[in-house]
């Protein structure tokens, strides 16, 4: 355990040193505050619209940003050590491959969690203090749910980045594949699903389709943060499928957890069989 923490600690101090932690926190805080204040601009006014609308906008942006940040943070976890020549040396220490990867995950995971907590937390506190007629309890619950799901989504993409990182032997390849993963889950998946939906003209099994949403962690994340308000009218596009899902919020949370646990286990397995 102590060697896992030693690795995690180095990753954490690295992200403090290269100001990743600070940069991500700042981006999150300014995004959240910007959306809170100008989110209602489309309807012709400036000011805080409503908590559900703010969270929904934040989640829509988060879908683009969180996976990208997580992938950038973690894509070179193993391949970077190998290219830097330190992987071989590390493996001669009393440290198993699983311990190394779990340590990395702990470090990267904590970095992302801290940045999310600081960034959105600060924004949440600012909204609670500055907006007069906001229900603080509602806001707190929504914000906490948003932060927790954001962290889980980020962990999922960190784990996906590891799967890439343990498989390839060059950093640029890992970076390219990470971008491809981002592109697929964030942009292509929904398009394909929507396309299938339209093209099938209702021929497809209507009960199966909503489950397909669970194949994409960003859709689960979006459902969690938007459906949670029980306001089905805001759902559009493929998300409307989510209203038919019989699993409820608990199932969605479980889905997000699985989305980081399964790729992480896969990465551990692949790493164990990798030649050094």
């Amino acid at each position: 355990m102590s060697s896992v923490w030693t690795i995690a600690r180095k990753e954490l101090s690295d992200s403090l040193r290269n100001r990743w932690l600070m940069a991500i926190s700042l981006v999150f805080a300014s995004l959240a505050l910007g959306i809170a204040w100008f989110g209602a601009a489309a309807s012709g006014q400036v000011g805080y619209a409503s908590t559900p609308a703010t969270i929904a906008s934040l989640a829509s942006l988060g879908i683009f940003l969180i996976p990208l940040i997580a992938l950038l943070l973690a894509y070179d976890a193993v391949v970077g050590e190998e290219e830097g020549g330190t992987l071989l040396l590390l493996m001669t220490y009393p440290l198993s491959r699983s311990q190394l990867l779990l340590g990395k995950f702990l470090g990267h995971g904590l970095t992302l969690a801290l940045a999310t907590l600081i960034g959105f937390g600060v924004a949440g506190v600012a909204i609670a203090m500055l907006v007069e007629d906001v229900s603080v309890a509602n806001l707190a619950v929504a914000m906490l749910r948003f932060i927790a799901s954001t962290v889980l989504l980020g962990w999922g993409f960190i784990a996906l980045a590891y799967v890439i990182s343990v498989r390839v032997s060059e950093k640029p390849v890992a970076a390219g594949l990470s971008l491809a993963v981002w592109f697929f889950f964030v942009l292509i998946f929904d398009l394909v699903l929507l396309g299938t939906l339209v093209a099938s003209e209702g021929q497809l099994n209507a009960e199966l389709l909503p489950w397909l949403l669970l194949l994409n962690p960003t859709d689960i994340y979006r459902l969690l943060n938007i459906v949670a308000f029980g306001d089905g009218t805001q759902l559009s596009g493929v998300l409307s499928l989510g209203a038919d899902l019989p699993i409820g919020a608990g199932g969605l949370w479980l889905g997000l957890v699985l989305w980081f646990a399964v790729p992480l286990s896969g990465a551990l397995l692949l790493f164990r069989n990798r030649r050094i």
Partner: peptide, 18 residues
């Protein structure tokens, strides 16, 4: 791990975190 703890190794072309 009990064994590797007592081994010191210097690889050819050793590299470190810059």
């Amino acid at each position: 791990p009990q064994v590797t703890q007592h081994i010191g190794y210097l690889p050819e072309n050793v590299m470190f975190y810059p």
